[in-house]
C-alpha cells in the first residue's frame, strides 16, 4: 500500500482510460464464449447450445482452408512490410526537400488517397488497370512492347496489385508518424555533424534513420496484431472468380459464409482465432525487442 501511496498520481492518471476500457472493451469480451456455441439470437449466451470447437472446424475443414489462410498471410505480411518501408523511406526523402513550400505541397497531396474508400478506388482501378486500353497497360505496351498485363485477373499479379495499391493509398497517411518522429530530432545534432564536415548522406545514415527506428518498431509491432487481416474492403471490391485461388482471404470467406449462416457464433470464432494469433505475435516481438534492443515497446 505504500507503493500505491507514492504512485497515486500515476494511478489517477490512468484511471479514466481504464474505466472506459473496462466498460467498452472488457465487459463485452465476456461474450467471446459465443465462439464455442451454436449461437441463436433469441436464446442468448445462456440458452444457446455448446458446440465446442465446431465453429473453428468450419474454418479448418474446408477444402480450401490452407489456401485461404495462406493467401491471408501472404497478402497481410507483404502489406505490413510495404506499409512500414514505404512511409519510412518517403519520410526520409521528404526530409531532404529544401523548399518548405514544395515539402508541404507534396505532403498534403500524398495524404489524399487515404480518404477515398475502396468502393470508389476499386472502380477507378478496374478502369486504369484494364487490359483493354487501360492507362497503365497502354504505358506498358508502348514502353516495353509487351502484352498487356491482366493485373486483376491473374493470381500473382493480383496479389502484387493489392499490395502496391494499398501501399499507394496509405503511405502518405502513414508518413505522419515518422515525420513527427523526425520533428523530435534535436537540430543541434545536424549542426554538429555539419561542423564535422559529414556529408548529407552520412547525416541521414547516422542521425535521421536511427531517430526513426524506435517508432518503426512500435508501429511494426502493433501492426502484428492485424496479421490475419488482409484488408476486407480492398479485396472485396477487387477480387473476382479468376483470382479466387490466390486472392480469397479469411475475411471475404467469412463474409460470404455469414450470408449463408447468419451465425454470430461463427464470426466470433474466426475473430477470436485472428486475435489469438495476433496477440501471440505481439508478445513475441515485444519480448524480442526488449531482449535484443533493450527497448520496451509499450
Amino acid at each position: 500500500m505504500k507503493l500505491l501511496k507514492r504512485n497515486w498520481p500515476f494511478h489517477l492518471m490512468i484511471l479514466p482510460s481504464l474505466i472506459f476500457l473496462i466498460v467498452f472493451s472488457y465487459v463485452p469480451m465476456a461474450w467471446i464464449v459465443m465462439a464455442f456455441q451454436d449461437f441463436k439470437p433469441r436464446l442468448g449466451i445462456s440458452g444457446s447450445e455448446w458446440i465446442g470447437l465446431d465453429n473453428f472446424r468450419y474454418l479448418f475443414e474446408r477444402e480450401d482452408s490452407v489456401q485461404v489462410i495462406l493467401n491471408t498471410l501472404v497478402i497481410a505480411v507483404l502489406k505490413m512490410v510495404a506499409n512500414l518501408i514505404a512511409p519510412f523511406t518517403f519520410a526520409i526523402f521528404l526530409n531532404e526537400l529544401r523548399k518548405m513550400f514544395v515539402k508541404r505541397f507534396v505532403q498534403t497531396l500524398v495524404y489524399l488517397p487515404h480518404f477515398l474508400s475502396w468502393v470508389i478506388l476499386g472502380g477507378i482501378l478496374v478502369d486504369i488497370l484494364s487490359t483493354d486500353g487501360g492507362f497503365v497497360n497502354r504505358i506498358i505496351t508502348n514502353l516495353f512492347g509487351i502484352e498487356p498485363i491482366f493485373f486483376l485477373g491473374d493470381g500473382t499479379w493480383f496479389r502484387i496489385t493489392v499490395v502496391v495499391t494499398d501501399m499507394w493509398k496509405e503511405f502518405g497517411f502513414g508518413t505522419v508518424v515518422f515525420l513527427a518522429a523526425l520533428a523530435n530530432v534535436n537540430p543541434s545534432l545536424y549542426e554538429a555533424a555539419e561542423v564535422d564536415g559529414a556529408s548529407r548522406f552520412k547525416q541521414t545514415m547516422h542521425i535521421t534513420i536511427p531517430s526513426m527506428i524506435p517508432i518503426t518498431i512500435v508501429v511494426g509491432t502493433l501492426a502484428l496484431g492485424n496479421i490475419l487481416n488482409a484488408g476486407f474492403d480492398q479485396i472485396f471490391n477487387l477480387y473476382n472468380p479468376l483470382v479466387y485461388d490466390k486472392g480469397d482471404i479469411i475475411d471475404t470467406f467469412v463474409y460470404r459464409a455469414a450470408i449463408l449462416n447468419g451465425q454470430m457464433g461463427f464470426g466470433t470464432a474466426i475473430g477470436l482465432f485472428k486475435s489469438v494469433i495476433g496477440m501471440i505475435l505481439i508478445v513475441i516481438s515485444y519480448r524480442l525487442a526488449y531482449k535484443l534492443a533493450g527497448y520496451r515497446i509499450f
Binding site: 507503493l3 504512485n7 500515476f10 494511478h11 490512468i14 482510460s17 481504464l18 476500457l21 472493451s25 472488457y26 465487459v27 463485452p28 469480451m29 465476456a30 461474450w31 467471446i32 459465443m34 502493433l222 496484431g225 454470430m264 464470426g267 466470433t268 475473430g271 477470436l272 486475435s275 495476433g278 496477440m279 505481439i282 509499450f298
Partner: peptide, 23 residues
C-alpha cells in the same frame, strides 16, 4: 512505477481482442 507493465498489457490486450458486435 511498477504497475505500469500490467496497465500497458491491459491496454494492448484490447487492441487485439474484442467481444464483437452483440455484447
Amino acid at each position: 512505477f511498477k504497475a505500469r507493465t500490467i496497465y500497458a498489457w491491459i491496454f494492448v490486450f484490447t487492441m487485439v481482442f474484442n467481444g464483437g458486435l452483440v455484447p
